[in-house]
C-alpha cells in the first residue's frame, strides 16, 4: 500500500508560510484587526437606544415608507437583545460579520467579474470555489490560528474564506446572464472593455450580485459562531459557553440573538436587492 501524507505536506506548507512571510501575515492581521475594531467602535459607542433607532430607520428606508413591518420587527428584536443583556456581544458579532463581509466582497466581486468575463478565469476559479465550499468550515480554523494566532483576526479570515464563494458565483452568474446581443450592441458601438463592464454588465448583473452579497452576509454570520471556538467572542462565545457549561439559558439566549440579527440582515439586504431588481 502506498501512503500519501498530504496532511503533513499541508502542515509543512503552512509552517513554511508562517516562517517565511511573518511580516506579510503580521501586516494583514493588523489591517483586519483595525478594520474590525473600527466597526466595533462605531457600533458600540452610541447608546443602545440610539443604535436601535438607527437600525429601525435603516430597515424602514430599505423597505420603503409604506412597509413598516420590518421596521417594527427591528425595534422589537433589538430591544429584546438589549433586554437579554447581549447588546455588546451582538455588536461585536455584527462588527465581525460586517468586516468579514466587506473583505469577502472586496475580494469576491472582482474575482467573480474575472470569472464572468473570461473562460479561462472560470475554469480556474470554479474548482477553488468547490474546495472552499465543501471543505468543512472547522478545518479553516486550524491554519488560520497557526498563521494569525487566536482571536478575532483568524476568525475573520476563516469567515472570509467560508462566506466568499456565493458572492463570486453569483457575480459570475450575473455577468454571464447578460444577453449576448446587448454585449454585441456595446461592441458594435465601439465600447472599450471597461465601458462594457461598467455601463452594461455590472448594472445588468446587479440583482444577482446583491443576492450574492445577501448570501455572503448570512454565511458570515453562521461562521462567526464557529469562529468563537478560536476566541472570536461575541454571540458565538455565548453559545459556546452554553454548550461547554451545559447552560441551556445562556445558549438559548445567544441563539435567539443570532436569529434576530440574521433575520434583520437578510431582510434588509433582500429588500435592497429586490428594489434594484424592480428598477430593471
Amino acid at each position: 500500500m502506498i501512503s500519501i501524507p498530504i496532511g503533513e505536506w499541508f502542515d509543512a506548507l503552512i509552517n513554511w508560510l508562517k516562517d517565511t512571510f511573518p511580516a506579510f501575515f503580521g501586516a494583514v492581521g493588523t489591517v483586519i484587526d483595525w478594520c474590525i475594531s473600527l466597526f466595533e467602535t462605531v457600533l458600540s459607542w452610541p447608546h443602545p437606544w440610539v443604535m436601535i433607532l438607527v437600525f429601525t430607520g435603516l430597515a424602514w428606508a430599505a423597505c420603503g415608507l409604506k412597509k413598516y413591518g420590518l421596521a417594527l420587527f427591528s425595534l422589537v428584536g433589538f430591544s429584546l437583545i438589549m433586554g437579554m443583556g447581549l447588546w455588546s456581544h451582538t455588536m461585536h458579532t455584527l462588527a465581525l460579520v460586517l468586516a468579514s463581509t466587506l473583505l469577502a466582497l472586496l475580494i469576491g466581486i472582482p474575482v467573480g467579474i474575472y470569472a464572468g468575463r473570461s473562460e479561462m478565469g472560470e475554469r480556474i476559479v470554479r474548482p477553488i470555489l468547490d474546495f472552499m465550499q465543501t471543505m468543512p468550515a472547522f478545518v479553516y480554523l486550524i491554519p488560520a490560528v497557526m498563521l494569525f494566532s487566536l482571536g478575532k483576526v483568524p476568525g475573520a479570515i476563516a469567515t472570509v474564506i467560508f462566506a466568499m464563494p456565493p458572492c463570486v458565483r453569483l457575480t459570475t452568474l450575473g455577468l454571464r446572464q447578460v444577453p449576448h446581443d446587448v454585449l454585441e450592441a456595446s461592441d458594435a458601438f465601439g465600447a472599450t472593455p471597461l465601458q462594457q463592464l461598467v455601463k452594461v454588465q455590472l448594472p445588468m448583473a446587479l440583482p444577482s450580485i446583491l443576492a450574492g452579497v445577501n448570501q455572503t452576509i448570512m454565511l458570515a454570520l453562521s461562521m462567526v459562531v464557529i469562529a468563537a471556538m478560536i476566541g472570536a467572542g461575541g454571540l458565538g462565545g455565548q453559545v459556546l459557553r452554553g454548550i461547554t457549561q451545559l447552560r441551556i439559558d445562556i445558549g438559548f439566549e445567544g441563539g435567539i440573538a443570532i436569529v434576530i440579527l440574521a433575520m434583520y440582515l437578510d431582510r434588509v439586504t433582500h429588500a435592497l436587492g429586490s428594489r434594484s431588481a424592480r428598477k430593471q
Binding site: 446581443d181 454585441e184 450592441a185 458601438f189 445588468m204
Partner: peptide, 17 residues
C-alpha cells in the same frame, strides 16, 4: 466602429435598466 457604424439588432439589444 464609433465613427462609421451603427447597428440594429433582431432582439433589440437594449439596456433594461
Amino acid at each position: 466602429r464609433r465613427r462609421k457604424y451603427s447597428m440594429v439588432f433582431q432582439n433589440f439589444g437594449l439596456l433594461p435598466h
